[in-house]
Design a protein around this nucleic acid. Structure first.
Lengths: 345, 345
DNA sequence: GAATGTAATGCAACCGGTTGCATGTCAAGC
DNA sequence: GCTTGACATGCAACCGGTTGCATTACATTC
């Protein structure tokens, strides 16, 4: 009763009851109250019931910070990404959140803005209050990452460092399928619109394109779009249209989308006279025309990474884990038969 | 010297030195070490220098959790959004992060998935370890929000509750400008493609459309797209094309983009025979054709919200704040003169 | 040279939980 | 009836910082 706030007064922040108040009010020791919440099996059912009842009435809720101080378990994890605003990340973030939520964990989000120094700063701020870290597309150098990994369980996404748990989105199969798809459509001369040279993903994609094209006797040229974005993709259109290729595979969907726009501006019709393939499948059907792309399951990466982190936090996994996520080609409407006049160049 | 890790051994998690170890190593009391970091002006320069030097050598870094326990300042804030994956939010999140970073704060991100119960759960988990909260497009009922606001500084985005600090993206001016723009182009009969009825933004936009259209003698019909998304926008195209209107204003860019796709599928040319206006300006020029839209400065909302939160956390602001962010129309290529045959319906 | 004031540092309690160990209670076993 | 053990609970130290107050050292003033 006394807790019902009368309409009107009561402006100061409602004071949160502590374990001591619950102890006094229910006539037991602080230790017993603590155990009623964290180790109820040690107590009589009756005691637990009584304590919880009193706690409820008082509005008591255990203080996470205090608990963390004595146990070292904060119930928090950190997720650091290179750019929240890149459409690749939101689904990943969302999935990671979901998984963490299910485990009752809170997640800190960090945005490194592609800057290693910033990323290092964030790790420093987080590491004291989290039980584990996920670094997505980390730009830190290997030495730093290794050091952090000795302090806390740490999982990498799309970064391949031996000895550290990592989940890698393996776009090679999807890219290979894309080349095969273009081959079947009669394209014999294509372009790879490449992303950041330091990016693991870009290296992997570029290599997959080269390998598969060579196998099929398809000629490939590389055209840069750096940093990868809608704008750089659009700018690449001129060079690509002039090169004589009949199709292009872009580093990611954003670049592909820019390329579509650039081609449209040059009156190159897609897919009638030119084919475009994206990568990541983060734009769905929202491009015009809907983009044929390598679906990279970026959401799964977030989910799996947090899952691995959890098992590392609990079990203390033995041995390193290198989790590969598969990819596949999604065919939409931006690819079509190579135009006759250009076929075989 | 003894701390230099020999290359080789040393596999166990590097133990973090505590204030006591620094105290012993530098021959001062724990209190002095503490002050060297949090109140250096109380100490001799010489002492501060010595202590910090030792601390550096040991790799000491103050434990945030312990500090929070005794001071109540955790250095954390929480940001809860209704859907990370909605393109409206990433720029907002990014800006909020940036602002928090500058203040040395860590940010928890929560994703309510449009579910009030989930949102409530998240708030409960966060509130014990943050100094303040930002709720963007909160789906909680007013009573809950008020209660949380008594416990911690709290700022709302796009939610208008009297007495609680809030930042509102005022799209009315931009929407009015859009109607004026359509009016000038000769459109006399248009559609509003509406979003969630419970959304403050939707109510505001719908009202602005009605008011301005009425003022200009333009006839408006409402067509729902719920939940607002690319798909519902696309589906709305049929009904809209059949209605005889010559232009549509969509609840947000995503819906507008879907509408563009739907119209294209019906062979309705935009902007030649139909005009489309979006809202939020989160897609930039990436649609085809580039979308005329009401630019809503969603990034600013994140920045301002955290700014207000900070001042509330520090100063304890007096009086309520209702911060409005302006909007303006960005004209791109999805709007054009009303087709003659339809003009004047 | 003693009294006074001020600045630098130390002592110890405190924040709100957790947990190893000691204590107390009660029932079963001999 | 006394020993033994299992179980429930309490005591008190601890996690790693912060901070009010006491103490010490030193400079200033008369």
């Amino acid at each position: 009763m006394k807790r019902d706030s009368e309409s009107g007064g009561e402006r100061r922040p409602a004071v949160v009851p502590t374990i001591s108040q619950v102890a006094k009010a229910s006539g037991v020791s602080r230790a017993t109250v603590s155990r009623a919440f964290s180790r109820p099996e040690m107590l009589t059912e009756e005691t637990v019931r009584r304590v919880k009842e009193v706690a409820d009435k008082l509005g008591y809720v255990p203080n996470q910070v205090a608990r963390a101080l004595s146990t070292g378990r904060h119930g928090n994890v950190a997720l650091i990404v290179s750019d929240v605003a890149n459409p690749f990340f939101p689904p990943l973030i969302r999935a990671a959140q979901l998984r963490a939520d299910q485990a009752g964990l809170c997640v800190f989000l960090g945005n490194s803005d592609e800057d290693p120094a910033r990323e290092e700063l964030l790790v420093g701020r987080f590491i004291g209050q989290v039980e584990g870290l996920v670094l997505a597309s980390s730009r830190l150098d290997e030495e730093h990452i290794r050091r952090h990994a000795t302090r806390r369980p740490l999982v990498l996404i799309n970064r391949d460092i031996e000895g550290i748990t990592r989940v890698l989105i393996d776009t090679a199969p999807g890219v290979a399928a894309a080349i095969a798809h273009l081959d079947e459509l009669g394209h014999r001369y294509i372009a790879y619109v490449s992303g950041p040279t330091t990016s693991w993903s870009n290296q992997q994609r570029r290599n997959a394109v080269r390998r598969e094209a060579e196998k099929r006797g398809i000629k490939v040229i590389a055209v840069p779009a750096r940093p990868p974005s809608y704008d750089t993709g659009r700018l690449a259109a001129t060079q690509i249209a002039a090169s004589g290729v009949t199709a292009a595979i872009a580093f990611d969907d954003l670049v592909a989308q820019g390329l579509l726009a650039g081609l449209a501006a040059l009156d190159v019709e897609v897919p009638k006279s030119f084919s475009v393939v994206g990568c990541d499948d983060v734009l769905g059907e929202t491009t015009y025309p809907p983009l044929t792309t390598v679906s990279a399951r970026c959401a799964d990466a977030g989910d799996v990474a947090v899952g691995l982190l959890l098992s590392q936090m609990n079990g203390g996994v033995s041995g390193e884990i290198r989790h590969k996520l598969n990819s596949h080609l999604v065919i939409r409407a931006s690819t079509g038969p190579a135009p006759a006049k250009r076929r075989g160049r």
